[in-house]
């Protein structure tokens, strides 16, 4: 009998292990947003996720001596941890909506479906050989998984806040990916990305407000007029 012998996986360095654990935290908060019943807790989770991404950027900057990343971490801290959540929370306060029943599926089924999506992302990225000087490769797979789960967040939740948060957190997933494979991206390009995100946030905010004023709800189930 020649069975395959099970070999213990290599032990990552403390640096790699911490970085991966942070990336896992990004993915887990994505799952949290997917299932969170309250819009407000979704926004808080997004803020937390952004904080983790910011921390990851600062961590890479410190460990790999990429000073430009400090600037990015700073912008990210202001924009994604503070400003964006504040904008959305303000909208929620003005709308005076506490709970939007918007789960299209049961929570357990949603989580299992998202798990399948995450596994798909991890396997696709895992099948490629990525070498990175800034972060361990597994973080890229986790980022891809977070991106796919953010898609499910947009698809499976039918309220404007979930969908907007889904888009913002998609950007967080891409940020993690860019920390892995594109930590050296020129600063001007990164700043352009942030500016763009800010513009998108403003437009999302305007449209969310318009939607609420028009329909008196944050749910998107009323958006079914256009077909064919």
């Amino acid at each position: 009998m020649h069975g395959a012998t099970l070999v213990a996986t290599a032990v990552p360095s403390p640096y790699a292990a911490t970085a991966d654990a942070l990336a896992v935290l990004v993915l887990l908060s994505e799952f949290g947003m997917l299932r969170a019943p309250l819009s407000r807790s979704q926004v808080r989770l997004y803020s937390f996720q952004s904080l983790v991404v910011t921390g990851l950027a600062a961590f890479v900057a410190a460990d790999r001596h990429i000073p430009g990343l400090y600037a990015i971490a700073g912008i990210s801290l202001v924009l994604k941890v503070v400003v964006i959540p504040a904008i959305v929370l303000r909208l929620l306060r003005d709308a005076r909506v506490e709970l939007v029943p918007s789960h299209r599926l049961g929570v357990a089924s949603m989580v299992l479906l998202a798990l399948v999506a995450a596994a798909f992302g991890i396997f696709v990225i895992g099948s490629m050989s990525v070498r990175s000087r800034s972060l361990p490769a597994p973080a890229l797979g986790l980022a891809a998984a977070a991106i796919l789960v953010s898609f499910l967040l947009v698809i499976l939740r039918s309220d404007v806040v979930s969908q907007a948060i889904g888009f913002f957190s998609l950007e967080n997933g891409v940020s993690v990916a860019s920390l892995v494979v594109a930590a050296g991206l020129p600063l001007i390009v990164e700043v352009a990305f942030f500016f763009d995100l800010l513009v998108a946030v403003v437009v999302f905010g305007v449209l969310m407000r318009v939607h609420h004023e028009r329909t008196r709800t944050l749910s998107t189930t009323v958006l079914d007029r256009l077909r064919g």
Binding site: T9, A10, P12, A16, A17, D20, V24, L27, L28, L115, A118, A119, I122, F123, I125, G126, P136, A137, P138, G141, L142, A145
Partner: peptide, 10 residues
């Protein structure tokens, strides 16, 4: 997820 990240190798 624990098993999946192990699959990723790190």
């Amino acid at each position: 997820l624990a098993v999946l990240v192990l699959f990723l190798g790190g």
